[in-house]
Computed example of a mutant assay.
Amino acid sequence: MEANGAPEERDDTVLLAMVAQGDTAALEELYRRHSAWLFARLMRRCNDSDVVVDVVQDTFVTVWKDARRYRGAGEVAAWLWGIAFRRMVSRLRSRKDVVLLPEWDTSGLGGRSPAAEDEVLLGVEYGDLAGALRRLSPEFRLVVQAVVLDGLTTKEAGRLLGVREGTVKTRLHRARAQLRGALTDPQEGWR
């Protein structure tokens, strides 16, 4: 406790380590800190709030079970988003009545076909792109995840990853070049 009687503010990494030790209060604190923005970001991608609520809950159940898997690379928030997004994609694979919305069209109206980005997002765990993403260095992969897959600005990604905005831009540029090379010529992309 701090001098004013308020509980000491703990870093997300500390809380996650506490969750790995079975501390339910630490899990509750992570939920309080992160569930609202996870819900908001997922709602920008899905037209069914019930699915989004389930995905957020599934995310924190996964955190409870798998907190020890966090490797400390990047921010806890980015790790949580990765879990949430994979849960969303998994949930939507079996549901034809739920639509993964483009970031810019949250209404679900207009009859537009999915944006290329959204088709990539749905297939990101499979095929050539998934393999190419896995072969990126962790620093490059985190930047691609934050900016391309999660839709953060370079400034937001820098804050999330704890690096300068210029570093995010440089890493993103290099990652795109590696991905482009790997997808056009798998042998050339990693030289």
Results as ranks from 00 to 15, higher is better:
D23M: 00
T106H: 07
K96L: 14
T24P: 06
A40Q: 14
R33T: 08
L122Q: 09
A115K: 04
V51L: 02
D118V: 15
A146H: 09
R95I: 04
V19H: 03
W64P: 04
N4K: 03
L42N: 11
D97G: 09
D66N: 11
F39L: 08
L142C: 02
S90E: 15
G158K: 06
A77N: 02
V147R: 04
T106Y: 00
A177V: 14
E103I: 10
R86P: 01
T62N: 09
A25W: 06
V52H: 03
V163P: 01
P102Q: 04
T24E: 15
L122G: 08
K169D: 13
G82D: 04
S137D: 02
D50M: 06
K169L: 13
Q21A: 14
G189E: 07
S107D: 09
E188A: 15
E9H: 09
V76I: 05
M43E: 09
P102H: 01
L109D: 11
R71F: 00
E119K: 13
D150I: 00
S137Q: 06
L133A: 06
M1C: 04
L136F: 00
L15F: 08
R93Q: 13
V53D: 15
Q21S: 12
A25V: 13
A84S: 14
G162R: 10
L133I: 11
V14M: 07
N4V: 07
G131H: 10
D58W: 00
R134H: 09
E188N: 12
E75F: 10
R174C: 12
M1I: 10
V99G: 08
V148I: 10
A77P: 03
R95A: 10
E75L: 08
Y70V: 02
L27K: 02
L100W: 13
A132G: 05
G108W: 01
R174N: 13
D58P: 03
L27W: 02
R176T: 06
M88G: 09
R176S: 07
L109M: 08
W81E: 13
R87Y: 09
T167S: 15
R69W: 01
T24W: 10
L129G: 05
F60R: 02
D128E: 11
L152H: 10
D185S: 14
D105R: 05
T24Y: 13
E139I: 00
L101S: 07
Q57H: 10
L121V: 08
L121M: 09
A40S: 14
D48F: 02
R87M: 12
P102R: 04
W79M: 06
R191G: 13
C46D: 11
V144W: 01
